[in-house]
Each structure stands twice: as C-alpha cells, then as structure tokens.
Amino acid sequence: MKRKLLLLSIMSAAIFTAKAQDSTLSITGSVDTYYKYDFADPKGGLGQIPTSFATDHNSLSIGMVDIALKKKISKAAFVGELSFGPRGQYQSIPAGDGNDLNGTNSFHIQNLYISYDLTDKLNVTAGYMGTFIGYEVISPTANFNYSTSYLFTNGPFQNAGFKATYTFSDKVSLMAGIFNDQWNGYRAFENGMDNFGAQLGLHPVEGWDAYLNVITGHTMGTEFDLTTAYQITDMFKLGLNAAVYSSSDYAKANFELPGFAGVALYPQVAVSSSVSLGLRGEYFKFKSDGPDVKAITATANIKAGPLTFIPEVRLDSWNEEAFEKKNGDPTKSASQFLLAAVYAF
C-alpha cells in the first residue's frame, strides 16, 4: 500500500512538473474532410471549377490534418505549423527545395517563424509565414467558405522573409518587410530577397477593419490588395477583397504568369450562435484580354462544439467555354455541391 501511495505521489509530482513546464506551449490544429459533386458529372475524378482545394468529384476526400505548435516566453515566440494531406501538401506548399531529387518530397511546413517584441509596439518576425495578402487563407478553420476564391488561388499563399510590425494605436498599424524572390518558396532562388511587402492596418470604428497590402519585386511583379470586413450589426457582417496583380517580365518569361484583377464580396448573417449563412460573389479577370469569370457561392456554417459542418453550393460562369456539360459539349458555366466537416482542436 505504501509503495502504491509513493508511486502515486511521484506520478502526481511528475504530472504537475510537466504541466508547469509546458504551460505556455500551445498545440492546436484541425482536421477536415469533404464530399463534392460536380453537376456535370465529369469523368476522371476531378471537379471542373479550378480554384484551390476541394478538388475531387463524387468522392469522400480528405483535406488535411494540421498541427500548430506555439510557445511564447517573455518577448520571444515561435510558431511551427505542420500539415499532412492534399490540402496541406501539394495543393498549398511546395515540395522540398525545388531540386529534382526533392521533387516529390514535402517539408509539410505551413508556418515556421520566430518573433520578438522589441517594444510594446514593435514586433519583428522572421521565417516562413502565411501570406499577409488576401481575405481567404489555407486553414479551413479560418475561412467561412470551404471552396476558395479565384483571388486566393492566384495570389501568394506564403511569403518567407523578415518583417517588422509597428502598432501606432488601437486604430493604426504598419507592417513592412523584405521577402524571398518567389512567392510560396521555402528559400530564395535566383534573385535573393527581392520582394518588398507592406500592410497598413486600419480600424476606423469598432467592428470595421481594413488592410491595404502590397507586395512588389522584380521576380514576381506587383500585387495591390484591399481586405476589409465590417460587422455592421450583431447579426450581419460584410467582407470585401479587391486586388490587382501585374506580372513582371521575369514571371511572364519563367512562369507564364498572367496579370489579374478581381473583387469578391462576402455578406454573412448569423442566424443563431451555431448557424451562419453566407454568400461569396466574385468577379475575376485575367489581364491582356484574358477571360473573366463570375462566381457565386452560398455557404452555411453549422457549429457543434469544435465541429463545423459546411454545406455549400457554387456556380461559376466564364465568358468563354471553359467547362463541359454532362454530354461532353462545351459550356461556359459549371456548378457543384459540397459538404465539408472541419474539426478544430
């Protein structure tokens, strides 16, 4: 009996010690899965709408398991976010270091950075970070819609570099930084850190946030982006994303990247504490007389604790015959239904 009590005491002490040591370590993440049906029933297992993620047709498919570690001690913090699965690997991050031998290798890293608060108002961060450009993000827990916009798909996903953020007041902040030459890459390639990026954050009134973003460089070109959201009433929120991208000569020659411009509107209504309904209406156009598309997506978020069900219907209409009908005839429009489940932990 005494031995058991002693053992119990030692175990308790060990648990308390472990908790004390790990008290600031945060482990969070998500798991997501979905079923999608493209109403043209295309062959080959893939849907027709060409934006990111939720690609598979008539299939119960996986998104990713995403695990983020974060720790902050005093003024120093790190974030390491790993992801596994189609959404968390080849659909959102590059493979290896770009060499042939690493062609199919993945580092699984969505975010890897270290930051330090130089003062209460000034923070510096270095590493590989989710991009500051745009309204939508890679993590399904931070998006309302499960499918993504054309603006998201065609903009940067991550930027590796160094940035400094200064908070002037509750209403104004400014970030400026230098980033690697190619968007999304883990390292710089031919042109070093030739991207300059900046974000002006404005919070004019309670409930309204606006971010004016720019990233510009010789390698990739220049993108200007406005991301804003206004919680107009307790129930109603309106978001807006507008961007224009001019491809550089280097990007045209090496990556065949066209320029683009677009705008997306995100009205959302909270029906109750667990149910919200939202629309995404987007107009997107490739520059230089390229095609354009109008897309509308109706989405619901139904929350049950950490689990969110996302039923969604989407209709895309191009100004040229970009899709196929069920009988194989070309058509300008395509539509799809999907049901996703996202568990956040």
């Binding site: 974060k70 989710g130 993590s139 827990t141 931070a142 409930g207 309204w208 946030d209």
Partner: peptide
C-alpha cells in the same frame, strides 16, 4: 480564432 499565422487573434468586429 485562429488566423493565417497559426496564432489566435480577435475576430474582427465581434
């Protein structure tokens, strides 16, 4: 809620 940098930050306007 979780933001793009895997941090937890205030939901805008709530």
């Amino acid at each position: 809620r979780r933001d793009r940098y895997a941090n937890f930050s205030p939901v805008d306007g709530k």
